[in-house]
Design a protein around this nucleic acid. Sequence first.
DNA 1: CTGACGATTCACT
DNA 2: GTGAATCGTCAGC
Length: 209
Amino acid sequence: MQRNVKQNWQQLPTEFYTRKNVMTIAKDLLGKLLVTRFDGIVTAGRIVETEAYNGAVDKASHAFGNRRTRRTEIMFANGGSAYVYLCYGMHHLFNVVTNTAEIPHAVLIRAIEPLVGMETMLLRTKKNKLDHSITKGPGNVSKALGITTNHTGMSLLKDELFIADDGFAVKRNMILATPRIGVIYAEEDALLPYRFIMKGNPYVSGKKS
DNA sequence: CTGACGATTCACT
DNA sequence: GTGAATCGTCAGC
């Protein structure tokens, strides 16, 4: 499998995550690499779809109204940690905690384009063919990269689970902002353009292949 | 302790 | 387009 892979990427520093505007961070995460190195096995992909969750004032956020529970506690930590939770009893959704302590911002990574460790991704997802479905949608991203709720709270500044910049340049006209997926319960906040996608990328979730 | 439900996915009509 | 799978979390009693 993938061991000792050459790293021409630079891990994002804490200052990337502690910024105050979560929509800006969600946009800046497009084009970056989400990397896992569990048991020495590297898998990575380029982020092509994200969603911002704007903390206490966002009805779509688990931390709306500063609601603190065992599950959401990590969102109140300083930026740069993982928030992973179980959705529908079977899907592990990976989020990046942002802003400083006590401000529960987060960015959901909804899709990546596989770059490193595709064989491992195929094993984890029990697929035998590398098609777009392997990392399209937040549940599939976590499955392919081996991320589970056991990783919630993990620091993104260490070397098991992190995000990196490989110099890939994302131009403004490559990005599209849309309403978020699956948050109709959020009433007026459901329509906010807090979802960011790389225009035309085949790994972006939603309609068409 | 109990029940309702979800930041989803996939197979099937 | 519709519905099942599947279980941790959380509000309410």
